[in-house]
Design a protein around this nucleic acid. Structure first.
Lengths: 260, 260
DNA sequence: GTAATAGTGTCTCTAAGACACTATGCT
DNA sequence: AGCATAGTGTCTTAGAGACACTATTAC
């Protein structure tokens, strides 16, 4: 988490395409801090879980020992853009390379960080839990998965990270109602019952089996990948998503009867 | 657009609630620039339109004379948070106080601004066109409404504002399929035919009258406000939205048959 | 009366919800 | 055989789409 001091001048490469390039500008007014935070979700033991890191036990740092979302300052020397910065922070914690990554929004205000006016750009990532080994970086003890429900009930997260986590969960749940996002939370090949359990874990309620299967198969985004044994007595068909780049959008939400 | 030089120290007020307040920090590494841009939509003469400002004709400024979205640097002395900054910029251009304002996302990279690494937080606003007088500030000639379709076809906007505008239009169109957002684009009281025309203008296609009326009235978010005459031969019932704070979400999109 | 727009009624279709049913493999 | 889980079929319902119909005003 410690940020190295970079001494380079602002780079203005490849800019100003239709005019003479302008020199990088040294600002004459104070700038906000710019950070990127990542809300990394997975499903662990049938619980929606989020990756948290513990802040250093150092009185000079804000929120010492408190748990926080992984993130940190944008490094204008290393990060080409915001998404690259988010991918870097994700990889540093999980060694996962190409997950589902979506921009959630930004939070910026005078007092969210005691060190001064700061704005954070927040991304959320979905990764399957199997085969996941947290990066054994400097401080593995400071990183861990927590159940989202527990975190929102008990812990007090650093900064405004509780509000950010709530927004991320809300966005995830609402999109899960009409997209195939949970397919990014299970290892391939997965069976339809496994996928359905993932939906149910994220949504926190059960879904009718018949309707679920009809919807998934009618959307025509899954390829059969042979029977998978061992999950239960009867083997089930395994599936892979045809195009992992784009999640599928269904024409309706689940359970429109209960929602306004 | 000229930014005054502010000399104040970073404020750390009301921060560090559960610990001794930390002093504001002077950064030891270069920071990106932080800006806020606003995509302001209205419907003008049955065309979805966006407010653009012309950049100064000054060789020292990037993209001189090019059209751009209204926006600028966050002023950490004046702007309490990002949304307040967006509201300020909206008011400076349109004198509109409390429109529909939603965060669209953020764009940040090393080369989107030739002056250096910058990140912009983008909001989009919906305002009714009637009774709208552009703020007669310093430079009224530099501000104006443009049809979105024309802008995306002909103009070359400054910075990455064309990509931002495309994202804003995409977000608006997709939300209009299943929300009451167009109600923010017409002056109250409005008739259902007026509202339907607004939907059709934003979506760029016609909608069946019967289904439209059924959906709007079944959602139970409109209050009758007496008959409105003069719009056509036959007077039509005028409506006001019951709660302007929250748009209505419909259970399905329009025309699910044609979309994937 | 006609023209123009406001507003309604009817029929069909899609896809979800509920739930009973069959199928397959383990012990 | 009995159990657990995989997978199917059938009936109902909500709400959209298409489109024909009636209603009210100006001229």
């Amino acid at each position: 988490m410690k940020r190295e001091i970079t001494t380079g001048v602002r780079s203005a490469t490849a800019a100003g395409r239709r005019q003479a390039p302008l020199a990088a500008v040294v600002p004459s007014f104070p700038l906000p801090f710019t950070t990127v935070d990542v809300v990394i979700f997975t499903v662990l033991d049938n619980n929606l879980s989020v990756l948290l890191v513990q802040r250093p036990d150092n009185r000079d740092e804000p929120f010492p020992k408190a748990w926080a979302l992984p993130g940190g300052y944008v490094d204008i020397g290393r990060d080409e853009d915001l998404a690259a910065c988010a991918r870097r922070k994700l990889f540093e914690k999980t060694a996962v390379v190409s997950p589902y990554l979506e921009q959630l929004g930004s939070w910026g205000s005078a007092n969210r960080d005691p060190r001064g006016w700061s704005a954070t750009h927040v991304y959320f990532a979905l990764i399957p839990s199997q085969g996941l080994a947290l990066a054994k970086g400097a401080n593995a003890a400071d990183v861990g998965w927590s159940q989202v429900d527990q975190v929102l009930k008990r812990h007090r997260l650093a900064f405004d990270h509780e509000a950010i986590l709530r927004a991320a969960v809300e966005r995830l749940r609402s999109k899960v109602e009409y997209t195939s996002l949970p397919a990014y939370l299970v290892e391939e090949p997965f069976t339809l019952p496994q996928l359905q359990r993932t939906y149910e874990v994220v949504l926190g309620r059960s879904i009718d089996k018949s309707g679920f299967r009809t919807r998934m198969l009618a959307a025509d985004f899954l390829d059969e990948a042979g029977y998978v044994e061992g999950e239960s007595n009867r083997p089930a068909m395994g599936y892979r998503v045809r195009d992992r780049a784009v999640p599928v959008v269904f024409p309706r939400t689940f359970s429109p009867r209960h929602q306004e």
